[in-house]
Design a protein around this nucleic acid. Structure first.
Lengths: 137, 137
DNA sequence: GTATTTGCAAATACTTTGCAAAACC
DNA sequence: GGTTTTGCAAAGTATTTGCAAATAC
């Protein structure tokens, strides 16, 4: 049995399809456990392991994005296009940051770092509109 | 017994001092377990729990920075001044990104997002000089 | 038909925590 | 002296994995 580069073909299962559908519908960026809760409304028997496996698989295929804001749990973004994010330091909410891409930042860093740069990301932190106006500061 | 805002005073223990000293000496950004290994050379009986507690405490005091690159473990930076980071997607190494701060990015995002922005960070990902030139791609 | 995927439950990895003894100011 | 900090070990939390049955193509 020869070892070769095995390119796995992804099959479109019900579970995977629902995960993708739901991710594309929502405007916020859910955690794996949020996704589990959402998907379970459509597929009550889906398991948490399946949700984790699919989110991981889909992000390594670049079909979705895995986000990390230093919270204990990762978040997921159904939009695979590069864009920036902003998160609320009080309630943890994560939104898209409405600013245009800055590809020139990569050239600037590549010049002096010695790294071959593949990607960059800008993340903002602050208070979301709801938390700014909330009374219980 | 009245509940009041208790500002804990940080005592300079041996363990804490060595952690800070070692962090300030190294040019890379170690994980908690790296710090544990380094500190144990000076203080063989230090416990991993103490290292975690101190790294956490010192980052919440803004004496050091806690970094997160989506790896399973956090990394720490002895330099508390804002600056950007670059990490190697192959070996995990994390360095400072040699580009100047872009404070104007915050104003741009604040204008349209509705968030009150407190901070931003740029992270780069790519291959470090060693991995670029390594043969085993 | 055959390789991928699932549900389940157990395992893992990193980090946090409770507690009594030790250390700091 | 009184409070913070430590070492130890156990617990917690998010995620991953092994396996036999089910599913997709």
């Amino acid at each position: 049995m020869k070892e070769k580069t095995t390119k796995k073909i992804l099959r479109m299962t019900n579970q995977r399809r629902v995960i993708l559908e739901e991710l594309s519908k929502i405007y916020f960026h859910p955690t794996a456990s949020d996704v589990y809760d959402i998907v379970r409304k459509k597929l009550p028997n889906v398991s948490l392991g399946t949700v984790y496996r699919n989110l991981e698989l889909l992000s390594s295929c670049r079909t979705i994005q895995k986000l990390d804001f230093g919270e204990p749990h990762k978040r997921f973004d159904g939009n695979p296009e590069p864009h920036y994010h902003i998160n609320c330091s009080r309630c943890g909410r994560v939104d898209d940051a409405p600013i245009e891409l800055k590809p020139e930042l990569e050239k600037e860093a590549e010049k002096i770092s010695g790294y071959r740069i593949d990607s960059h990301h800008i993340s903002y932190s602050g208070l979301c509109p709801d938390c700014v106006s909330a009374p219980d500061q």
